[in-house]
């Protein structure tokens, strides 16, 4: 189950693409081109990279509203994602979803969901349908640490446990649910320990380490696909930006953030690849430039795309 050298390089390219995509989104938001809420994935890219290679394309993936990185990892074209950000009809959700509601059913990426924890039951249902038909497909459900304290978490993980639903539950623990730290929000801040309550294994992994996260995720996928029921994985990470744009970040010191930024998962992975002799630094620079160019191209496509026609208001609501 090891990653090939090519996959390792692609993982780096993916992370860099996510980073540049998010930075550009932040810029477009500040300039008023992107509306609504915008939750950036910056700092959590290693999890998206691991997901890309540990979870086969035919499996289901579903996540919360911090969904850009996951969408890119599932292969959604960044120009269509950027078009969605700008509310264009060429966007993945035809401009009706926005940043928090990206989906591509052809890629079995069932979307980002904006009510905290609301997608956890949906994940259970996606998995139920495959189990019901006797398919060996599994569902990977990502969520933030904040969603572990809403009732949905309890009901969905319990049902998955009772019915042996094929779900890999992945908590992306970035230490804060909005501005409230895990330790201030959770009576037991060891979130993976909750698995015990639902009769499933729980594991914790360094979510800033691509290799470790890939290994844990691939093992979890294998565990679930083999018919052992669900599993809970807690990936420890950190978001470098605010909860969303416009977060005053009164709940943490600037020092805390800069200290974390020294452990930037992209830098860590790049250095790892150089040390392993997989690439040299010139190659990484090249990849970075390529990512920038791809994002430029995505913005150009989005800007040139048409807005939804007025008739779109009344389509897609009843069959």
């Amino acid at each position: 189950m090891a990653m090939t050298d090519e996959e390792k390089i692609e993982a780096y390219r993916l992370m860099m693409t996510v980073r540049r995509f998010e930075e550009r989104c932040a810029q477009l938001y500040s300039e008023g081109d992107i509306g609504g809420f915008l939750h950036l994935y910056i700092g959590q890219e290693a999890i998206a990279a691991a997901l890309r290679f540990a979870v086969p394309e035919d499996d289901n993936v579903i996540t919360a509203y911090r969904d850009h990185g996951v969408a890119i990892a599932r292969g959604l074209p960044i120009e269509k994602l950027m078009a969605e950000m700008l509310g264009k009809v060429t966007g993945v959700s035809k401009g009706k979803g926005g940043s928090m509601h990206l989906a591509d059913v052809d890629r079995r990426y069932w979307g980002g969901y904006a009510v905290v924890g609301g997608h956890l039951p949906l994940a259970a249902g996606l998995a139920l349908a495959d189990q019901y038909r006797g398919d060996d497909r599994i569902t990977v459900c990502l969520m933030g640490d904040g969603s572990t304290n809403i009732g949905y978490f309890h009901e969905a993980l319990n049902l998955a446990g009772v019915w042996d639903l094929p779900v890999v539950w992945v908590i992306e623990n970035n230490e804060y649910g909005m501005g409230t730290s895990v330790s201030r929000a959770s009576a037991n801040p060891d979130l993976s320990a909750r698995a015990t309550a639902y009769g499933m294994p729980g594991k914790k992994v360094d979510g800033d380490d691509v290799q470790a996260t890939y290994d844990a995720m691939a093992e979890a996928v294998e565990h679930v696909r083999s018919g052992n029921g669900p599993i809970l994985l807690e990936a420890m990470t950190y978001r470098f930006r605010g909860h969303s744009m416009g977060d005053p970040e009164r709940y943490r010191e600037k020092d805390e953030v800069s200290k974390q930024e020294e452990q930037d998962p992209i830098k860590l992975w790049g250095n790892h690849l150089i040390n392993e002799g997989v690439v040299n630094s010139d190659r990484l620079d090249e990849i970075e430039k390529g990512a920038e160019k791809a994002v430029d191209e995505a913005v150009r496509f989005a800007r040139e795309s048409p807005l939804p026609s007025p008739e779109e208001l009344y389509t897609d609501v009843y069959v």
């Binding site: 069932w110 039951p121 949906l122 259970a124 139920l128 949905y152 009901e155």
Partner: peptide, 15 residues
């Protein structure tokens, strides 16, 4: 919550 939510997910996925 999960009775309805899981039913929605199963419906999205073909049942």
């Amino acid at each position: 919550m999960v009775i309805v939510g899981a039913a929605v997910g199963a419906a999205m996925n073909g049942l």
